[in-house]
Design a binder for these strands. Sequence first.
RNA 1: GUGGUUGUGGCGAAGUGGUUAACGCACCGGAUUGUGGCUCCGGCAUUCGUGGGUUCAAGUCCCAUCAUCCACCCCA
Length: 423
Amino acid sequence: MAIQRPKGTQDLLPGAVEQWQYLEETIRSVCREYGYEEIRTPIFEATELFQRGVGQTTDIVQKEMYTFLDKGDRSMTLRPEGTASVCRAYVENKLHGQPQPVKLYYMGPMFRYERPQSGRFRQFHQFGVEVLGADQPLVDAEVISLVWNLYQRLGLTKLEVHVNSVGCPVCRAKHREQLQEFLALRRNELCDDCRDRFETNPLRILDCKNQSCQTITKGAPTTLDTLCENCKTHFEKVQDLLEEAGVVYRVDSRLVRGIDYYTKTAFEVMVEEIGAQSAICGGGRYDGLVEEIGGPPTPGIGFAMGIERVLTALQVQHKLPEGKPRLYAMLIALGEKAQSKGFSLLSALRVQGMPVSMDLQGRNLKAQLKAANRQGAHYALILGEEELERNVVLIRDLTLGEQTEVPLAEAVETLNEKYRRGV
RNA sequence: GUGGUUGUGGCGAAGUGGUUAACGCACCGGAUUGUGGCUCCGGCAUUCGUGGGUUCAAGUCCCAUCAUCCACCCCA
């Protein structure tokens, strides 16, 4: 049996790649406009980075990492997300010595050992942004507005931006306590999953999809109820600024993020229509993370966006540009001599920046014309024995079905002139 | 990790126990010697994910296995 690609991975064939490039280019230009610079970190890191950064108790660390021992017996892990690496790089390269804040973005593959489903892969791709070294609400708002504007630029509609504050470690502990207290009496009525969550992550019970759990949690204290003064004013300011920026959002006090490092602002963007995994972007503030992985106390905020999910959203909303690159001209050479002569004509045209091609299999005239037509070539340049003898080439306009004869020596100039005029 | 779905040529898709496995698209070739897009003609699965089993007979039934897709969980 032939070898197949690993479960949960994809081959991106021509046709799909153009769509990726379009998305990537749009992302890059928005980042440029916001003053963010790209960072590229290794695709694998010391396992400990993620254990400490993402959090020992998270599903990601407990059951989803691609971890292996290298030949020197070091435990390595294929990165499951990007934030920990960026923070590590910030510390390791002493970026705290540069003017703060440092505004970075990254794009690339991430790896998580999960059961694939729609919108979920084992190798998937994220675009993410991280701002290190500033704790002002203005930063939170800028980051969210970047996401918003990117989606506007792409033409996405029916977006839901959810914003919440999970507070600092102090308010969070307080909330957890109050929530457990609230739920304690009706603990046995919760669904199986939620009974587990009661201990591990009671916050998650708040956004359980189970109908009965939802009624039980009605009136439960939310993270917003227990915010300290500082966190509260921070969150209010963020909201004011989002209004300023024209971001359409909704406060969702039940929004919970699944990674340990989040503090204060948390947000998520969802689109229906792309299946159960509807979050196309998730992020928030993580003021304790840099210190957690051994750096100086440094506030940070960022988000990650699933490229595959954004692409399917664009697909279902028909917002992807049409676009296979078209050939300008196809050289049709008949016979070996014509092939060599034509080959040199081709390179002369390519130097001018024209997308041109030729048959590489020595097929007959008819087959070559057919191929030229299929590839959407505007012109066919016919060069056979007869033309060769007379030192000319036929320029056939495939849309009009007309052809003219020009001296070989003038072919480049003639075509270049047409190409510049866009005909 | 749990539950369900599907698995026939490059793609889409008939076929629900009985001789040589429809059809469409794509692809390749041809319709007077060197002119495409339309049309016509021809070619293109010794084989039905894989391995077993039942049967006189299996793509069609049974078991196993692999893969796929979807959902839960979790996340982007």
